[in-house]
Design a protein around this nucleic acid. Structure first.
Lengths: 193, 193
DNA sequence: TGACGGACTTGAACCAGGTTAAGATTTAGT
DNA sequence: ACTAAATCTTAACCTGGTTCAAGTCCGTCA
């Protein structure tokens, strides 16, 4: 499986020589996923950080009533997974699955830790990645607290136009924090009356 | 100003020798804040990352209608600030101010970058810090999407009991994503009818 | 090709939480 | 200590969004 995509991402923030790339490549586990396939399921400890090479994944929480709440989508070039379970080594409370046929690389936690020890520039890479991620999370929080569902949908469409082709509307509704029914109403109003 | 608190935090994840501590100490800017005093204001680029040595700070967003939305509180031992402005060097959209008389250390961005270059273990420290922060942000998002305001208040009180003594209820309401009036209703019901 | 299930829409009744405005209580400044 | 301002509460009314139930429009697989 082609590793140019993942190294392109690394090289947005750090530079890697061939030896380093080789070390990284040697621990990445490539996998192909069918649409709908689960990567992580509730109750098991997540042992991999996940890079999306191709396709689209989503991570969601299922509450006590059985309602799903989408935490994040992940498109090609993004890292994803259940950071809670991965970090604390507690059973996962989220599920991650493919929204389309996808290719991913798994980076097992133990290998990731070894790499971070061996190549401190990777600490830097993930520090920057996580720092940016916090900024996005704060932005989303603020959106949920300060603008109407209608506006959130408009902003979402503008910000992630490519997601609308992969993602069923019901998951977009969930991401926006509303029901599919209400998203339907918003869309009707929006498309002229 | 006493730097033992900040080094105790560093040493939760990494170990530092005296030389390294000296380097860090030499760039930290200590400051005392009066209750209500602003640390960062909307419109200016944030050039400091902030460590709370004593007291309590909060960061909030003021929307188009003039309503404040609390992004985060920060107590003694926590890092805080406007990570958006700090990272992207864009004018701040958030305000940060002291909720009580406080002591903080400012870590200027240029100094922080130099330290990170010089001591890669600091990359590690902040990588871990940010990774944990993402977990908290996701937890809060999920809470906002899946439980009632009533439950959120209960969870908040349990999780941050020490905050209730510093923080006016209207800011707790804002953090929970509700109005002060509605929080009042919740509290009334809660305290025995 | 038909029938099954998943995704999307519609409409009506309903509710969690918002809005407004007024009063009660605490806090802070001089 | 006195006042002004900020915080907190109460109550009546309002609305964005939910719930539930029914119906439509696919894609898919025997």
């Amino acid at each position: 499986m082609d590793t140019s995509g993942i190294f392109a991402q690394f090289e947005r923030h750090i530079t890697l020589d061939e030896k380093e790339k080789l070390s990284i490549r040697s621990v990445l586990i490539p996998a192909r996923l069918k649409q709908g396939e689960f990567v992580e399921t509730v109750g098991k400890v997540t042992s991999n950080f996940i890079f999306v090479n191709l396709g689209c994944l989503m991570t969601y929480y299922t509450d006590a009533e059985g309602t799903d709440h989408v935490i994040q989508f992940a498109m090609a070039g993004w890292w994803t997974g259940d950071l809670h379970s991965f970090t604390k080594e507690e059973p996962s409370i989220y599920s991650t699955r493919a929204l389309s046929d996808s290719e991913v690389f798994y980076l097992p936690k133990t290998d990731m830790e070894a790499l971070l020890q061996k190549f401190p520039k990777l600490e830097r890479y993930f520090r920057i990645l996580f720092q940016n991620s916090i900024v996005s999370h704060q932005h989303r929080l603020i959106q949920n607290l300060s603008v109407t569902a209608d506006q959130r949908y408009e902003n979402f469409s503008k910000r992630y136009p490519s997601l609308e082709q992969y993602v069923p509307l019901k998951y977009i509704a969930s991401y926006l924090g509303i029901t599919p029914e209400f998203l339907s109403k918003i869309r009707r109003k929006r498309s002229g009356h």
